[in-house]
Design a binder for these strands. Structure first.
Lengths: 343, 343
DNA sequence: GTTAGCAGACAAGGCAGTTGAGTGCTAAGG
DNA sequence: CCTTAGCACTCAACTGCCTTGTCTGCTAAC
């Protein structure tokens, strides 16, 4: 397979731009008239035939125009597309929405998700940081009844996690002392570090399980184990996607609705993005996996102190205006990372 | 308009049962053959014409069978339908699922919702009790930074509510003392009562705003105000509805998807059910309100110690098997009420 | 009051013809 | 050698027409 010539590229570019706008198969004439009037339709047809052979375009049927394949989009993304910078209006819109409100981090991220969806006109997804990536602020144990203890964990950023532990009966007074001990002893660690530290100390302290410290450690470990499994996710603006003309087919609409319901899959795919620096675009097979053929996702991890803690993305039909959405997602990831920096 | 004769009723009954089963307009012949073979189709046609005149049936077009109108269903529900009792299997299924798990009430209600949806083969909705209907167990104040204090409220049943309050800088030590005071002073009240009590005491204590008690009261009131606005809702099994053949029309499917997204409306309509004793069935205009024409909702409030605290329901196409779903919803409401009794 | 029979309505499905958009190929022109 | 005009061909989508099957309303007879 040859490299693409400049002319090939400009034609592919035009086709994709037209397709993104209309959603219809695009023919040679329109390209000639609307984009590249120095070239005749016939010439463009020849190039199109080449591009099709390379697998970048396809025809839904022989007498129709061409539609870019996932490979076509991929190729467009890798070099042809020119990324616009994010308009000032949108930047201010983002910062305003994010800095509003009470400072509850779940709330902030929910608002971020709303903005992301509004600007991109697609659905947006944010995976919240797992609480164990945050700094430990405080733990509380509350005795609910003879065999249930509630553990409440607060991070410095104001994220709360609570969990009920089944166990033996311990008086509230003792529980308070355990909590006090942990609160003093594990200041300024992340919750993850705290857990490691607890484990270490536990094994060295093993003999003295009956001491206050030993029991506090035990309860702390039980509580933190449960933390690891929870993963919170926010999806906003599904309806913008459902209402797009792309889903004019009943079964496809059903598929997409169902795919959104099954959050686990989306989380899994977003988690893979976490480690990749910068903005990733997932399309083609990667999306078919989760039952969303012809859809794509623009996603990025965000981090605190350069450690990735969560990810966010925009999901919509493959014909998305990537030149707008990519910088949007990138900017949002940066802003959130900055926001988390000092938490 | 006359009363319905027994024969009218049995014909309406047959039409509704047939329609619930097939979803298609039902003609006179089928009724004659399958349900009431002592009557000829012609006779049934005559009765059907009468029922149509009364507004209980309608024809989608002149040469089609009849479909029950919302009024037809209403009429069926008020006297014709015979409510079956809930099969033993389903009862045990419900209790097993509900008594499983950690005892976290949110979790329990989520599982209840899943069961409700599975058995009814429709979407289910549960509005969680507002936390202020629960018994106060404990409050905690955590100083996050100079101007943010986190309030954590725990109910005796193990429901947690947290909220960030913006305010002046108070040391953690003082906050602990405030919390201790409140925890001691307001034992064994519901959170709602606690709030009233705080207010009363506040106005009598007005002068001494600088005292520990005064400040504790102030913080408590601020925190409890925010509680009032939150309303938690769980929806499960939307996909069972989306996949029903009733939604063979693209626009209708879109409408329903959108209606589910807009939870506020559903909450509002469910809240109206709260005060009504027993199981209510909403159909017709009440559902059109929330963009769900041709759908209906079987709902019931549930209570603790005879005070209604939340509601639950099943949403699906109007052609629902009410004789199964109504006892199901009723049973579930009773079980949840019992469960809450001792919390 | 009930029923048989008949005419009329109409959605749904199959079929043929038309239209229009778009292609591939070929041969001529720069 | 690249580009382009022209032409034949393909095919989806639309249209109108016809047939079929179902169901009704009406009327006259039982």
């Amino acid at each position: 397979m040859h490299e693409l010539t400049d002319r090939d590229k400009s034609i592919l570019n035009a086709i994709i731009r037209e397709y993104v706008e209309t959603g219809e198969p695009v023919g040679s004439r329109i390209i000639s008239r609307k984009y590249l009037y120095t070239l005749s339709p016939a010439t463009i047809r020849n190039v199109m035939a080449d591009l099709e052979e390379m697998g970048l375009l396809y025809q839904p049927h022989v007498s129709a125009g061409r539609i870019p394949t996932p490979e076509g989009f991929r190729c467009y993304l890798n070099g042809i597309m020119e990324v616009r910078s994010l308009p000032r209006v949108e930047k201010t819109m983002i910062t305003r929405q994010i800095t509003r409100g009470s400072g509850d981090i779940r709330d902030t991220l929910r608002r971020a998700s709303v903005v992301l969806s509004q600007i991109s006109q697609n659905a947006s997804i944010i995976i919240l940081p797992r609480i164990d990536t945050f700094f430990f602020k405080r733990v509380d144990f509350v005795r609910l009844d003879e065999n249930r203890i509630m553990v409440i964990l607060v991070s410095r950023a104001g994220m709360v996690y609570n969990h009920i532990v089944q166990g033996e009966d311990i008086t509230q007074h003792k529980l308070d002392r355990y909590a006090n001990y942990l609160n003093e002893a594990y200041k300024d660690l992340t919750i993850h570090e705290m857990r490691d530290s607890l484990m270490r100390e536990m094994s060295s302290e093993k003999a003295s399980f009956d001491t206050l410290v030993g029991q506090a450690l035990d309860l702390g470990i039980t509580a933190l184990k449960a933390v690891e499994e929870t993963q919170d996710i926010v999806i906003q603006g599904k309806e913008t996607v459902f209402n797009k003309p792309d889903l004019a087919d009943l079964d496809r609409l059903r598929d997409i609705v169902n795919a959104f319901e099954d959050k686990g899959r989306i989380v899994r795919i977003l988690n893979r993005v976490l480690e990749v620096p910068g903005v990733s675009v997932l399309l083609g097979e990667e999306m078919e996996h989760i039952g969303m053929d012809n859809f794509s996702m623009v996603a990025s991890g965000y981090s605190r102190r350069n450690i990735p803690v969560g990810s966010l993305g925009v999901i919509g039909p493959m014909r998305m205006d990537y030149s707008r959405v990519i910088p949007l997602v990138g900017y949002m990831a940066r802003i959130l990372s900055e926001l988390l920096e000092d938490m």
